[in-house]
Amino acid sequence: MKPRIETERLVIRPWRDTDASDALVIYGDEHVTRWLTPAMTWVPSVQAMRDVLHRWMAEDVPPVRHWAVELRDSGRVVGGAAVLRLAPWEDLEIGWQLARTAWGHGYAAEAGAAVADWTMHHTDVDELFALVGPTNARAAGTAKRIGMELIGETDQYHGQQLNLYRIRHYDLAYHADAQEQASET
Rank of each mutant, 00 (worst) to 15 (best):
T7K: 01
T7N: 01
T7D: 06
E8P: 01
L10M: 07
V11W: 08
V11E: 13
I12T: 03
I12W: 07
R13I: 03
R13M: 06
P14Y: 06
W15E: 01
W15S: 02
R16P: 00
D17W: 10
T18K: 13
D19N: 09
D19E: 07
S21I: 10
D22S: 15
Y27A: 08
E30K: 13
E30F: 11
H31W: 11
T33Q: 06
T33F: 07
R34G: 04
W35Q: 01
L36K: 00
P38M: 04
A39R: 08
M40I: 07
M40C: 00
W42D: 11
W42Q: 11
V43W: 00
S45G: 02
Q47A: 14
A48T: 06
M49V: 00
R50Q: 13
V52T: 12
L53I: 15
W56T: 01
W56Q: 14
W56V: 06
M57H: 13
M57A: 14
D60E: 12
D60T: 10
P62C: 08
P63S: 08
P63L: 01
H66N: 14
H66A: 07
H66Y: 15
W67V: 03
A68L: 05
A68S: 12
L71P: 00
S74H: 05
S74C: 03
S74V: 04
S74N: 04
G75C: 06
G75F: 10
R76I: 14
V77R: 06
G80N: 12
V83P: 05
L84S: 15
L86E: 06
A87Q: 14
P88K: 07
P88H: 08
W89D: 14
L92C: 08
E93D: 13
E93F: 02
L98I: 03
L98C: 00
R100C: 10
T101D: 15
T101A: 15
T101L: 12
A102V: 10
Y107W: 14
A109Q: 08
A109P: 09
E110R: 02
A111T: 05
A113M: 11
A113C: 11
V115Q: 02
A116S: 13
A116Y: 03
W118C: 02
H121Y: 04
H122T: 13
H122Q: 11
T123N: 09
T123Y: 06
E127S: 14
L128F: 01
F129H: 11
F129D: 00
